[in-house]
Design a protein around this nucleic acid. Structure first.
Length: 545
RNA sequence: GUGCCUGUAGCUCAACUGGAUAGAGCAACAGCCUUCUAAGCUGUAGGUUAUUGGUUCGAUUCCAAUCAGGCACACCA
């Protein structure tokens, strides 16, 4: 819809011999400022040497746009040019919602761009805790959004099932197992204290009795149990990864060694105290870093660097990593290493979300992993349901500290923002059920399109709703450009609100069948947008509440 | 001490990346159900955007300093 304006404005700049500045068309915050606004007159003021309002005047003179498209053009404030679309143009444009239906909102801004999104990536040493939820949801929704923008998305989970942490897991399970066997052995100092360790030990004990001493067996069992647990939770949340990338494969196919050799040839490593160091300081960082310990084992940095190089070699144009703020320190080293190896790290987009605190009965829930009484993600889903988990985790920008109010999420009441959205959808569904009883079509969109006299739509509340529905594709694009899914929740809340307002102002079912059909079409369009939005957000669009 | 994030209404947060009168939800107060779902709608009240400077036509947004909170500063990931 904006294309016409864009083209006309740049044409005007040309004929007026103004410099070709970038033309920004924005939606004003206040409705009385029209549907679209541009600030070019103010931008031009300095270089042209005239007052913004005068410039705006000259530009407007040059515009040739039919009254049937733009009903009014105004100069306002310091020099904004405000455009208002003609109602008939809005109504006409809105037909595309019905035409595209389930696909309405999709766009091709990411066409032919391969993006890899890597997230969750928890090692199989225990269940996901509730704090993990933010990352799980953020990544899942972002991946959906990218897909709706036409990106070729690969969802990836990177894990490590070797090394210290896994040994620790094995030792912890072994200690619990020994307890079950009646032996008293010292529980490892940095062991995992969670109840699940006892569960795993019990399972092994039940199955095998007292005979096991092979630590590898405990590690294998522990890994299996933890991974099954993690995957089970992800399944509950409908999170599906295309690739599970095992860090170990980087050793097997020699990629780790390759990276070391390359660093060596670039004179970026040295030996000290029996360890191998990366000269991070020559790459502009604070300190040099160990990449191979004196035990011969690499630190996380080396495989991480190799892994990112691998992603480049696999041909991704954009690589997204999602981390919690507690992992922030690991990023600069890894990226510096990857860059030193000749890769364009601007293609790596690291999203860091701040920590989450949970509120129950007005008090903070403790998340201590060590004490073993961690509040797991599974328990959170149990407490508030999948829909609320999705909505609450995604409704805030990633870089604010999130307060998750369990009491609120649990409430089946008007206070809960998830229900507001679902209620609007259910309400529409209810209207459509009534209409169906009277033999009105509500499923076959193209039939509706042909049978509807759209010119019957002209009330203020109807036009307002349509305008908002027409913003949907742009909202989705906005979310992907900024990698910020929370904009979508703000938008959808507004759609629901605008629908409720329409609902209260006008009856849909009526004796005037033509009007009724037109309003049913409007309802269906609103339903399409809310449903599509809900699907992206992982929230179920309910037919009944 | 250093790095990153944050500070906006009583509470939880937006503000389209520099635009016009800073907006929502919850909580508070006052209204609206013999008609399609009141999990809704309408209205009232609530602000020196932590503080102080700077940049410019214009700052919640950018820069600097200060104050406050969170996270991280390993041969753990």
């Amino acid at each position: 819809m904006k294309e016409i304006l864009h083209q006309q404005l740049s044409q005007a700049l040309q004929t007026l011999h103004y410099p070709a500045v970038e033309i920004l068309l924005e939606k004003p915050k206040v409705a009385t400022h029209g549907d679209v606004t541009t600030n070019i007159a103010m931008v031009l003021a300095k270089s042209v040497g005239k007052k913004p309002r005068e410039i705006a005047e000259t530009i407007i003179q040059e515009l040739k746009i039919a009254q049937t498209i733009i009903s009014s053009i105004e100069i306002a404030g310091p020099g904004f040019i405000n455009f208002t679309f003609a109602d008939s143009f809005i109504v006409e444009s809105s037909k595309k919602v019905l035409i595209e239906g389930k696909n309405y909102g999709k766009n091709s801004s990411g066409k032919n761009i391969k993006v890899n999104i890597e997230w969750v990536s928890a090692n199989p040493t225990g269940p996901l805790h509730s704090g993990h939820g933010r990352q799980v949801i953020l990544g899942a929704v972002l991946a959906n959004i990218l897909e709706w923008n036409g990106y070729d998305v690969t969802r990836e989970y990177y894990f490590n099932n070797a090394g210290n942490q896994m040994r620790n897991l094995a030792e912890s399970i072994y200690a619990r197992y020994c307890e079950l066997c009646g032996e008293n052995i010292q529980f490892p100092g940095d062991g995992y204290h969670g109840e699940y360790i006892k569960t795993i030990a019990q399972e092994i004990f039940n199955e095998k009795g007292k005979r096991i001493t092979d630590k590898n067996y405990f590690q294998k069992k522990g890994e299996e149990w933890c991974f099954a647990n993690i995957k089970n939770i992800l399944t509950k949340l409908n999170v599906v990864h295309d690739v599970f990338y095992n860090e170990d494969s980087l050793y097997k196919n020699g990629k780790i060694q390759e990276v070391i050799e390359k660093f060596r040839s670039l004179d970026l490593i040295y030996e000290k105290d029996g360890a191998t160091w990366l000269k991070a300081t020559t790459l502009g960082l604070e300190n040099d870093r160990v990449i191979v310990k004196n035990t011969g084992e690499p630190t996380y940095r080396l495989p991480d660097i190799a892994y990112h190089c691998e992603k480049f070699l696999r041909g991704f144009d954009v690589m997204i990593d999602i981390f919690g703020a507690d992992h922030i320190a690991t990023i600069p080293d890894v990226l510096a290493g990857v860059k030193a190896l000749g890769y364009d790290t601007t293609k790596v987009k690291v999203i860091i979300h701040q920590m989450v605190s949970f509120l129950r009965d007005g008090k903070q829930v403790k998340l201590s992993k060590r004490s073993g009484d961690a509040y797991t993600l599974d328990e959170l889903i149990e407490d508030v349901g999948k829909d609320a988990v999705y909505y609450f985790f995604v409704m805030r920008s990633a870089n604010t500290h999130l307060e998750f109010n369990i009491d609120l999420a649990q409430q089946q009441s008007e206070q809960n923002p998830v229900y507001y959205l679902q209620y609007a959808h259910a309400r529409i569904a209810s209207i459509l059920r009534f209409a169906e009883e009277q033999n009105f079509e509500s499923k076959n969109f193209s039939a509706i399109l042909h049978a509807t006299n759209f010119s019957r739509i002209h009330e203020k509340e109807e036009i307002e709703l349509l305008k908002l529905l027409l913003d949907f594709p742009e909202e989705i694009q906005k979310c992907s450009i900024s990698y910020e899914p929370h904009h979508l929740t703000v938008y959808l809340r507004e759609v629901a609100e605008t629908f409720h307002k329409f609902y209260h102002a006008h009856r849909v079912l009526s004796e005037d069948k033509e009007l009724m059909k037109a309003r049913l079409a409007l309802c269906i369009m609103a339903k399409i947008v809310i449903a599509n939005g809900c699907i992206i957000l992982g929230v179920e669009p309910k037919e009944k509440m």
